[in-house]
């Protein structure tokens, strides 16, 4: 990979990072919203660096390049040219080993693997991957919801259920709902009307459907599924977004043994895709 190719790859990669953050919200499909500024900064740095490399190459890289053209890349093993090394690289030379694996002159050339940096560019501009949805929920199967984090009592719930006035409709994340339904031994959720937003996922046995939302800690690779079962409303098309109001169906017996959390709906409303598909 020669210098121009390296520079252009960097520019394209930077452009992909910037395209998915500045003019569009594509990046929300993959990472947390707070990550946007970092992606923008990284994109700017890469575009600048790429442009600098190209400029430097066009201005004065001739001699270095010509020299390199003489040495076939496979024969770089012969390049154990100790005296040519600068003082600065003394330490490097000591550990270099210089096994001649095809890029002895990597000051100028990059290994072939660097071409793979164009894959994320292709992904952004051609595939434009959507947020994870019903496919992921279905294929993760049985396990539903996040775990109890500890047993400290209800003070650990970060939702606004406790503060809300009785009778008020409480807006909860699907994750908060599932957490409450699973571990809140005081059952504060009982008889409270809540509002949840998520996408529709068909159930395996075709009875009812799930309102699901993916919870993301860092990026889509660590997304955790949260889902709530709805049986009293006809199943909508998979991956359509809905705002559901209703009350929790209290399970019989121990909360912890409940494998699914159900909600009795009072209203089901279609919503356009929320800007951030994850919680």
């Amino acid at each position: 990979m020669n210098r121009i190719a390296q520079g252009l790859t960097l520019v394209l990669l930077g452009a992909a990072a910037l395209t998915s953050t500045v003019p569009t919200d594509l990046y929300l499909n993959w990472v947390k919203p707070g990550f946007g500024p970092f992606l923008i900064a990284a994109g700017v740095v890469m575009v600048l660096l790429g442009v600098l490399v190209i400029v430097a190459e066009l201005r004065g890289g001739d001699q270095a390049l010509d020299q390199e053209d003489v040495v076939p890349s496979g024969a770089a093993a012969a390049g154990d040219d100790g005296p040519a090394r600068s003082e600065l690289d003394h330490a490097a030379a000591e550990y270099a080993g210089h096994t001649g694996d095809g890029h002895g002159h990597d000051h100028e050339r990059a290994p072939g693997v660097a071409w793979l940096l164009l894959l994320p560019v292709l992904a952004v501009f051609v595939v434009a991957p959507p947020a994870l949805g019903s496919y992921t929920v279905e294929s993760t199967g049985g396990s539903s919801g996040p775990p109890p984090r500890d047993e400290n009592g209800s003070s650990r719930f970060t939702d606004n259920l406790s503060e809300a006035a009785p009778g008020e409709v409480v807006e909860l994340d699907v994750q908060q709902f599932v957490m409450r339904a699973w571990v809140d031994e005081e059952r504060e959720l009982a008889d409270r009307e809540v509002e949840l937003t998520g996408f529709a996922v068909p159930t395996e046995d075709g009875e009812g459907w799930y309102l699901a939302r993916l919870q993301m800690a860092c990026c889509a690779a660590d997304a955790v599924v949260n889902k709530v079962l709805i049986t009293d409303h006809p199943a909508p098309e998979a991956d359509t977004w809905w705002k559901v109001r209703g009350t929790w169906v209290e399970p019989e017996g121990e909360l912890y043994d409940a494998s699914e959390h159900e909600i009795d709906t009072s209203s089901v409303e279609a919503v356009t895709d929320p800007p951030d598909p994850y919680e």
């Binding site: 990072a17 998915s20 990046y27 499909n29 993959w30 990472v31 992606l39 894959l119 994320p120 992904a123 952004v124 595939v127 991957p129 959507p130 947020a131 994870l132 990026c219 889509a220 690779a221």
Partner: peptide, 8 residues
């Protein structure tokens, strides 16, 4: 999606 997410 997951590939892009990890890369970015």
């Amino acid at each position: 999606t997951i590939f892009t997410a990890i890369s970015f």
